[in-house]
Amino acid sequence: MADNKDQGAGSRRAELGTGVWVFLMLGVLTFGEFIVGVIASPWGSALLLVAAFKAFFVIVYYMHVGRLFTTDGDGH
């Protein structure tokens, strides 16, 4: 029983930790986009690539697209 509680707390911490590092990465990339957009705006394609990279991380880690391919009611 205590083991289950510890396991639950550990998984909660890990999930919250993932949320933090994804957010930090998105923040750094967005600030990088801003700097590039202000000083070298013709680099539109590169900026779109960065946006696609950011979107990938949100779709995988925040939207949990992987849950679509599980059949066991994962997470609930």
Binding site: G44, L47, Y62, M63
Partner: peptide, 27 residues
């Protein structure tokens, strides 16, 4: 879960719109 996924979707859309409206090309 549904509200969260929808909210993140709106965020993903803005990631591209932000680049298209504010950063790409010359003003």
């Amino acid at each position: 879960e549904a509200a969260a996924v929808y909210w993140h979707f709106v965020d993903v859309v803005w990631m591209f719109f932000y680049v298209g409206l504010y950063l790409m090309g010359s003003p």
